[in-house]
Design a protein around this nucleic acid. Structure first.
Lengths: 222, 222
DNA sequence: CACAATTATATAGATTGGCATATCATTATC
DNA sequence: GATAATGATATGCCAATCTATATAATTGTG
């Protein structure tokens, strides 16, 4: 496989990872079978143009033929658009929430919902267009911070009562109400993620219960 | 074939045409068989990435994967590099010569050498790096303008003599000397073209007779 | 250890890629 | 003016390889 080819394939792979899409999820969106995506990413197959374009489109990438002379300038332009997002307040909010979650996970390391939440947020961070979703991100972060406060208060109370905390299954360590809130948060994040990954025919972003409706989305599995 | 695919193929085709390369010439340079190039350009075949990259490379194009968001900016950059050439004095000289030739063709519409010359000049215009060849272009334009003057003088003389101009074959309407000069001009232009298309292992540009030496070059046929 | 999700492999079928050649256009020669 | 010749592009045929369906290996989780 030529260098240029490898470079393109790597870019595709990176883009998929940045969006937090699994090969299967990407497959569903593109119509390109998952097994192909696997081969493409690993096996150095000489992919056909239609497949490449399908994959690129779904990853919000455009395949362009630019004069070599302009290649450097183009790279510069591309670089200048991507990290612009990183400086925006939306990402700051996102990072803040991510910190909160990491903090929570330190206290509740076995809570799978927290891990899921962290992963979803991380995936969200990889999306280019997340920068415009400040409000949505605040709506996500606020309840999570509230949740953290509630849990801290709870921990304080429990400390007084000195219960047998280790024996109880970890999921039971926090009241059902908070657990539900947590799951709702995961759902909201993944919902937003799906919205941003690209316009998919699904219900708008207002929080929905945590149960599944379909399995088209990326990673929005239980 | 998808729209995006078609667009890329068209771009390739245009790039080839702009370089004045025949399918066969491109084939020689890329290793991609001419029959494929034909199929690619016409038959809507789902070309493989390696072929696409080979063709692109030879046409001085880079295949880039850019975020859709940055696509417009990239287009702008590409546009801004290409026509920069169009404003340069070298291109002005080229256009001047082209005008002269068009003018001549109006008077001698059947003279195949003139058509060839015009085509060669047009192909030259499509080359990115022609902008640096002001002197060479002047060397081309000067004899052509001189040729035109000579022919105009000749036409004036003939008008007086009132010969049967229509009956004589068109090639005979101008004296052998001028015809030779014309052919020399064609050769010079195509020579320069070959030089610029990209560095190919051939003799340098000093004017050579119009006969063929090999068939590797683009269009440097008789 | 079972279960689920993600990724990799195997075999069957479709299509490209390459070779030889046909078609079409233009030029040269008689 | 007809015909041959040169060059450019398009079309059949066959091997090579990609794409697709199904399945297996791998990894993480409870």
């Amino acid at each position: 496989m030529s260098y240029a080819t490898q470079e393109l394939i790597d870019a595709l792979k990176a883009a998929r990872a940045a969006k937090g899409l699994s090969q299967r999820a990407l497959s569903k969106r593109t119509g390109v079978p998952q097994s192909h995506i696997s081969k493409i990413e690993t096996g150095g197959v000489d992919i056909r143009l239609s497949s490449l374009i399908e994959l690129a489109r779904t990853l919000d990438l455009d395949l362009k033929l630019v004069p070599c002379k302009a290649a450097a300038a183009v790279d510069s332009v591309v670089r200048s658009t991507a990290p612009a997002v990183a400086a925006m307040p939306a990402v700051k909010e996102l990072n803040r929430t991510l910190d909160t979650v990491r903090n929570l996970r330190y206290v509740y390391p076995d809570l799978s919902e927290l891990k899921k939440l962290q992963n979803s947020l991380q995936a969200l961070k990889g999306l280019r267009n997340v920068g415009r979703e400040l409000e949505a991100l605040r709506d996500i972060g606020r309840p999570i911070r509230k949740l953290k406060q509630a849990l801290e208060k709870l921990a304080g109370e429990r400390q007084g009562r000195a219960e047998q905390q280790k024996a109880t299954p970890y999921a039971a360590r926090i009241p059902a109400e908070q657990l539900l809130a947590l799951r709702r948060a995961v759902g909201t994040v993944q919902n937003l993620h799906n919205q941003l990954v690209d316009t998919i025919p699904e219900q708008p972003l207002p929080p929905r219960p945590a149960y599944r409706l379909d399995d088209d989305g990326a990673n929005d599995d239980g």
